[in-house]
Amino acid sequence: MTDARANFDEAQGTLTVSGAWHAEAASALPALGDKTVRTLDGAGLTELDTNGAWLILAAARPQASDPMPGLQAFQPQHRAILELVALHSAAAAAQPERSRENPLAAIGRNTQVMQKHILGLLAFIGHLSHELLALLGQPGSWRWREFAAQVGSVFGGAIPIVAGMLFLLGVVFAYLLGDQARQYGANIFVVDGLLLAILREISPVIVAVLVAGRTGAAITAQLGTMKVTEEIDAISTLGLSPLAVLVIPRMLALLLAMPLLVFIGDIAGIAGGMLVAQQQLDISYSMFMDRLTDVIQLKTLLVGLGKAPVFALFIALIACRMGLSTTRDARSVGVNTTSTVVQSLVAIIILNAIFAVMFVKLNI
Rank of each mutant, 00 (worst) to 15 (best):
2 T>P: 02
9 D>H: 09
11 A>M: 06
14 T>C: 10
15 L>W: 07
19 G>C: 09
22 H>V: 10
23 A>G: 08
23 A>L: 15
26 A>R: 10
27 S>R: 13
31 A>L: 13
31 A>Y: 10
33 G>T: 08
37 V>T: 03
41 D>K: 00
42 G>I: 05
43 A>Q: 12
43 A>T: 12
43 A>H: 12
44 G>C: 05
58 A>T: 12
58 A>S: 14
59 A>F: 01
71 L>I: 10
72 Q>N: 13
74 F>P: 03
75 Q>L: 10
79 R>I: 00
82 L>I: 13
88 H>V: 13
92 A>L: 15
97 E>D: 14
99 S>A: 14
105 A>I: 00
107 I>D: 05
107 I>G: 07
114 M>R: 03
120 G>R: 08
122 L>Q: 10
123 A>K: 15
124 F>I: 08
132 L>W: 07
132 L>T: 07
135 L>D: 02
136 L>E: 10
139 P>N: 02
140 G>A: 08
145 R>M: 09
150 Q>P: 00
155 F>E: 05
162 V>S: 07
166 L>M: 05
167 F>A: 10
174 A>I: 00
176 L>S: 07
186 A>E: 04
190 V>N: 09
193 G>R: 14
194 L>N: 02
200 R>Q: 06
204 P>Q: 06
205 V>P: 01
206 I>D: 02
213 G>T: 08
215 T>I: 14
219 I>P: 01
220 T>V: 09
225 T>I: 07
225 T>G: 15
227 K>E: 13
227 K>W: 03
236 S>F: 03
237 T>E: 01
239 G>W: 08
241 S>P: 04
242 P>M: 03
242 P>T: 04
253 A>D: 01
257 A>I: 06
260 L>Y: 00
266 D>L: 00
269 G>V: 06
269 G>S: 09
270 I>H: 01
279 Q>W: 14
280 Q>N: 12
283 I>E: 03
287 M>V: 13
288 F>N: 11
292 L>M: 12
294 D>Q: 15
296 I>R: 02
302 L>V: 09
304 G>V: 00
310 V>Y: 00
311 F>C: 05
312 A>T: 00
312 A>D: 04
314 F>H: 06
315 I>W: 10
322 M>D: 11
323 G>I: 09
338 T>V: 09
338 T>Y: 06
340 T>W: 06
341 V>Y: 03
343 Q>H: 10
345 L>H: 08
348 I>P: 04
349 I>K: 01
359 F>N: 13
362 L>V: 11
363 N>V: 11
